[in-house]
């Protein structure tokens, strides 16, 4: 089976979803190769990437209402259960990014500003979580 290769028949919704989620997770536009792989994964891994109707509805709502998928996603995690569809889609993008020559990058040089950077990241994460929780409650996602 060849993972790479174009998938012209993929639905526009899936393309739109990939563009939206990637931008939210990585704050940049999705590269074409990664988009093709995202579509190919959905074509090949139908069982793993199919969602229950309520999960599909949540993903659809997030995209339609332009909500924050990255802030909402941690609230959808349930310990010991299968990953929520939104978690799976974000994980898929992360794996595609990491395996496709864009690893987030282990620190190979000492960073004197590590602690302040990490503190800022944690603060940003807390804000994202708060925003996600509010949006999830407002739109009845959790």
């Amino acid at each position: 089976m060849k993972i790479d290769g174009s998938l012209p028949g993929a639905p526009d919704e899936l393309r739109k979803e990939a563009v939206f989620l990637y931008k939210a997770a990585f704050n940049k536009s999705i590269p074409d190769t990664l988009l093709e792989r995202y579509l190919r994964a959905h074509a090949d891994l139908t069982k793993q990437l199919e969602g229950a109707p309520f999960e599909l509805q949540i993903v659809k709502t997030i995209i339609e209402k332009n909500l924050d998928p990255v802030g909402i996603e941690p609230w959808l995690r349930k310990k010991g259960r299968q990953h929520h569809l939104l978690t799976r889609k974000l994980l898929l993008l992360s794996f595609l990014n990491e395996c496709g020559g864009n690893p987030a990058g282990i620190s190979r040089s000492p960073d004197r500003f590590a602690l302040p950077c990490m503190a800022l990241t944690v603060c940003a994460a807390a804000l994202a979580l708060l925003r996600g929780r509010i949006q999830a409650a407002r739109y009845g996602l959790v």
Partner: peptide
């Protein structure tokens, strides 16, 4: 792979990946 560690990290995906770099 860092992506394998994301579900265990109780943070948004983007923040977790940024945090891993220094953590």
């Amino acid at each position: 792979l860092w992506s394998d560690l994301l579900p265990e990290t109780p943070l948004p995906v983007s923040s977790a990946l940024r945090l891993f770099k220094n953590m």
